[in-house]
Amino acid sequence: MNTQVYVLYGGKSVEHEISKRTALAIINALDKEKYDVYSIYINNEGIWCNTGKVTEELKELREGEVDVDMTPTLSLATVLQECFSPGREHVVIPALHGTYGEDGTIQGLLELIDVPYIGNGIMPSAIGIDKAMTKEIFSKVGIPQAEYVFFTIQEWRRRDSQIFEQIENKIGYPCFVKPAKLGSSVGVHRCQNRDELIEALKDAFTFDQKVVVDKEVIGREMQVAVIGNENPECSVAGEYILEKSFMDYNAKYVDGNLIPVIPAHIPDSLHKKMQEISQQAFQVLNGSGLMRVDFFVTEENDLYVNEVNTFPGFTGHSMFPALWEATNGMTYPEIIETFIDLAIERHQNSRQIQYTRGE
């Protein structure tokens, strides 16, 4: 019997629409003769809906009918009962970005029900989405980063004047304000003075209760894609030609003006160093499956890790698959199959762990 592959999409997240783009590309790329492919939609309120088996290419995703009396808990229980029957091999592709998808929550659920899933586990997902915690861990192992500070909304309310002083003395202007646990540049602002900083913090705190403020690094933005479990491999580095001081949500997903350059035009020695740092970042976070590591590269060829993405955007036009195609010719469907194989491998390894005491 074919392996049953369930693609989760949507989710209770500001990155809901991006998730749908990723899921549509993945569903259409999956070999329907090799896998039985099913789609599961999660709406903006967290209601789960089994939208059924997919046997042909989709033009758009199904969202299904949701009972008005349904609750997230009841809908989840219904979907679990319908989908994960005993005696079949299942793999879940959580094509979910941001909150409740990339933050360890869905990974924890899948661990509890003992179903293999592609991508990173609970810890790397929870840490990787939290820019503050990622930066703290990277600082302990010497991964180069720009100067940063972070604080919660409670700290901000208690001692805003001291935080202003800390930002202006340590970081300076221009600086970048970011919600700690979001991606896709949602809630991110470049600030050139205190008035802009105040407005940026107000907006960032609507998306998260913790924010990060980074020192601006003047340089090119580059990315390296990582695939693997215990022995991760790195792609060549790629970059986007920037038309703005930073790539906000519209620049990335609406305007369509990004110009990728793969491989990036950098010396071989710098390329190798980026791959080494990317592998180090993946391993220190205990990554599995995939990760994208984002860099700033200055005119002097100094490297700074900006952030990691534990489940990056994955449409046919995204940087991650383009990087691997340029590295070794791996096609989009081949990458998806590699992810599935890695998920099954990690799940089988986890089953070697003993959860009861021997007599």
Rank of each mutant, 00 (worst) to 15 (best):
L258K: 05
H271F: 04
Q283C: 13
K273F: 00
A251K: 03
F295W: 13
H265C: 09
E299T: 05
D248Y: 09
G228E: 15
V217F: 15
G287M: 02
M291D: 00
F246L: 10
A251E: 12
R220W: 05
Q279H: 06
R220K: 10
N231D: 13
D203M: 05
T206Y: 04
I227N: 14
L201T: 13
N309R: 05
D294N: 06
F282G: 01
V217E: 14
Q279F: 11
D203N: 11
Y304K: 00
I259A: 05
E199C: 04
G219D: 05
E216A: 09
E300C: 02
E199W: 08
G219F: 12
E233H: 05
I227H: 05
F282E: 04
I227S: 04
M247I: 08
N229V: 06
V305I: 08
K215A: 09
G287A: 14
I277H: 00
S245D: 07
F296K: 15
D248P: 13
L303A: 00
L303I: 01
E239W: 06
V254Y: 10
Q223L: 12
N229M: 06
V236K: 13
N250E: 10
M291L: 05
K273T: 00
S278M: 15
N286A: 07
H265E: 15
E307I: 01
I277T: 15
F246C: 02
P232F: 07
A200I: 01
N306Y: 10
N309S: 06
K252E: 09
R220I: 12
F311R: 02
G289P: 00
G256Y: 07
N286G: 02
G219E: 10
E199I: 12
I227M: 13
S288V: 00
D268S: 13
